[in-house]
């Protein structure tokens, strides 16, 4: 879905709502939540999250539920299960756990023809210089999903600090570690969030977020690396064998190993929500993330970004 089309749809929706709303003011403050009350919303609309993996299928977004439940210290917010142990006017410090969602790309990954080029790798110095028979032409090796080891879901736990610098400006920092030792590494997130409510359109709220995700080399390597556990199937025809004089399968496979390294992936997010009534809201969201080099250099990644966009309406069942 093209972003301009989504924006046009959103503007049409809000203009229509503005004309039919009789200037009713609705409480649009979503930064506060009622303690002890289960908040359940459903978003309905059109959107997708792109999949950067080679042959990866984009993740469609049509119907998305949202749950929040906060107590004085304990909270659950869309997959984050946390406990706040320090809170003052500006700072909130919490311990939390959640499922690492890096594997969501792999669960929708069905590569068919992923080509690794041993010639290109040679140019990058991956092939041993003491091999006089280093190939000079491209050899295609298929990565078959059946032969790539299955990536597992990791459960992360860590700390989060929220800094509410003002009513409009807040910062969030997170440092997480996988507690079930799937990748034995860390990941972090830092973002700045700015909320804006135009005075001329009372029911409209706008949110912009600027931040970055950091992934340790262990995490990047687990999800985006290629090594012994990933059996790279390939077929060389007789011509290839004659030209390149390569018949050592292990060597060729080994040449195409990829070791991931720590990555910083910056992102920008824009969100605009227009309250049509107390329970209904039209909203538009777009999130662009530029993948760090440790991820995008992987042979199984062919896009250097992810783009998540959504336009639709949401209904909150409790408010």
């Amino acid at each position: 879905m093209k972003i301009p089309i989504l924006l046009l749809l959103f503007c049409s929706l809000t203009t229509f709502a503005e004309q039919t709303n009789n200037n009713t003011t609705i409480d649009t403050d979503e930064s506060l939540i009622t303690v002890g009350q289960l908040h359940f919303s459903v978003a309905m609309g059109i959107g997708e999250k792109t999949n950067p993996l080679v042959g990866g299928k984009n993740i469609p977004l049509y119907l998305v539920p949202s749950f929040q439940y906060y107590r004085d210290n304990f909270y659950f917010d869309n997959g984050d299960l946390g406990y706040t142990f320090f809170e003052n006017d500006q700072f909130v410090v919490s311990a939390l756990t959640r499922v690492n969602n890096e594997n969501s790309y792999f669960s929708r990954w069905h590569p068919q023809n992923v080509f690794l080029s041993s010639a290109a790798d040679a140019a990058q110095g991956i092939i041993s210089p003491d091999n006089p028979a280093a190939p000079t032409e491209k050899i295609d090796i298929d990565i078959d999903i059946e032969n790539i080891s299955k990536r597992k879901w990791a459960l992360d736990a860590g700390m989060q600090v929220n800094w509410f610098a003002s009513d409009n400006l807040s910062f969030l920092g997170q440092l997480m570690h996988d507690v079930n030792s799937i990748y034995d590494g860390y990941n972090g997130n830092f973002k700045m969030l700015y909320r804006y409510k135009p005075k001329t359109i009372e029911n409209l709220s706008i949110q912009t977020t600027l931040g970055f995700d950091w992934s340790s080399s262990a995490m990047v390597d687990y999800y985006y690396g290629l090594d012994e556990k990933d059996y790279l199937d390939y077929e060389l025809d007789e011509q290839d064998k004659r030209d390149h004089k390569i018949d050592e399968k292990e060597k060729l496979v080994g040449d195409n190993f990829y070791q991931g390294h720590s990555s910083i992936s910056p992102y920008f997010k824009f969100y605009a929500g227009y309250h049509l009534s107390k329970n209904w809201k039209a909203f538009f969201s777009v999130n662009y993330k530029h993948l760090g080099s440790g991820i995008k250099d992987s042979p199984i990644v062919d896009k250097d970004y992810t783009l998540t966009s959504f336009i639709g309406v949401s209904y909150v069942f409790t408010r």
Binding site: E30, N78, V92, G273, S285
Partner: peptide, 15 residues
């Protein structure tokens, strides 16, 4: 009285 606290994730941050 209704007791509120600040949300620690932003609205629809899952997108």
């Amino acid at each position: 009285p209704t007791k509120t606290r600040r949300r620690l994730r932003s609205a629809w941050s899952i997108f």
